[in-house]
């Protein structure tokens, strides 16, 4: 195991994060604050409590998930796509490292960034609403797994993407709609029965629901299903990454 390589990849990815602190840090905080103002205060004041929780507090887990999923995906995809784009990938390919070490470095850094952003949003939300976290351990576990699995997804996208348009395609056209329709801002029980069934095909529902359960102890779907879903998703991403590793898909000619 070339630990030095993992260390420098992780470090250089993290330093990119801190170099663009305004973009990577302030913008999610600002957009979250805007969500709180619009959904929490303006609209929320007209919505009754959802499952015994004030609407403002109810949307906190969903908001964190929304940002964490998109940030983990875009950070990881950009992280590995950028060397491909500017040509510095030659160094990764000629270095005495294996694919696993590359994945740990890039995915680890992207997941860390997303985790930090998630914690910042959580902290920000304390300024707007009253929330207590019933099961902090489950909360951290869900957050960590979500960061990791979506960073893996992003890594796969970054390897696959041949240009910047493709790089944006999946996050914009797949991840964001799934997250918005995944119960981030509402409880599934608020939907008509038909749409409740449709929603169950959206994998994000299980993640948001499980994460919300760790806050309030209530969930749209059983917690075991949420755990199963996030584990399955992580396993799928890992399997795909393993396949890339085996075949050198889109990396080595």
């Amino acid at each position: 195991m070339n630990l030095q390589a993992v260390r420098v990849i992780y470090k250089s990815e993290m330093s990119r994060f801190f170099r663009t602190i305004a973009q990577s840090f302030i913008s999610p905080v600002l957009s979250t604050s805007l969500y709180f103002i619009v959904f929490g205060s303006a609209i929320g004041s007209r919505i009754q409590e959802v499952e015994g929780v004030s609407y403002g507090a109810f949307i906190v887990p969903g908001l964190i998930m929304l940002t964490v999923m998109t940030q983990a995906t875009s950070n990881a995809s950009f992280g590995i796509y950028f060397p491909k784009f500017i040509g510095t990938i030659y160094e990764l390919l000629s270095a005495p490292i294996n694919f696993l070490e590359i994945v740990i470095g890039y995915v680890g850094a992207a997941a860390t960034k997303a985790f930090i952003i998630g914690m910042v949003i959580l902290t920000t939300s304390f300024f707007f609403v009253d929330i207590t976290i019933q099961n902090p351990f489950a909360m951290f576990a869900f957050l960590t797994l979500t960061c990791l699995s979506f960073a893996l997804l992003g890594f796969i996208l970054g390897i696959w993407a041949g240009n910047f348009e493709q790089l944006q395609l999946v996050p914009l056209l797949v991840v964001t709609p799934l997250v918005f329709l995944g119960g981030s801002f509402y409880s599934i029980s608020m939907l008509p029965p038909f749409w409740q069934t449709v929603t169950l095909f959206n994998p994000v529902v299980y993640l948001v629901s499980g994460f919300r359960w760790s806050f309030f102890g209530t969930a749209d779907v059983p917690i075991a299903m949420s755990l199963g879903a996030i584990t399955l998703f992580t396993a799928l991403c890992l399997a795909f990454v393993w396949w890339i590793f085996k075949t050198g898909w889109k990396i080595r000619s």
């Binding site: 030095q4 390589a5 420098v8 250089s12 160094e91 005495p96 490292i97």
Partner: peptide
């Protein structure tokens, strides 16, 4: 930084 990065990538200590 970029030169130190290369050194690390090749498994050499800082």
């Amino acid at each position: 930084d970029t030169v130190s990065f290369s050194r690390g990538l090749f498994g050499k200590k800082k």
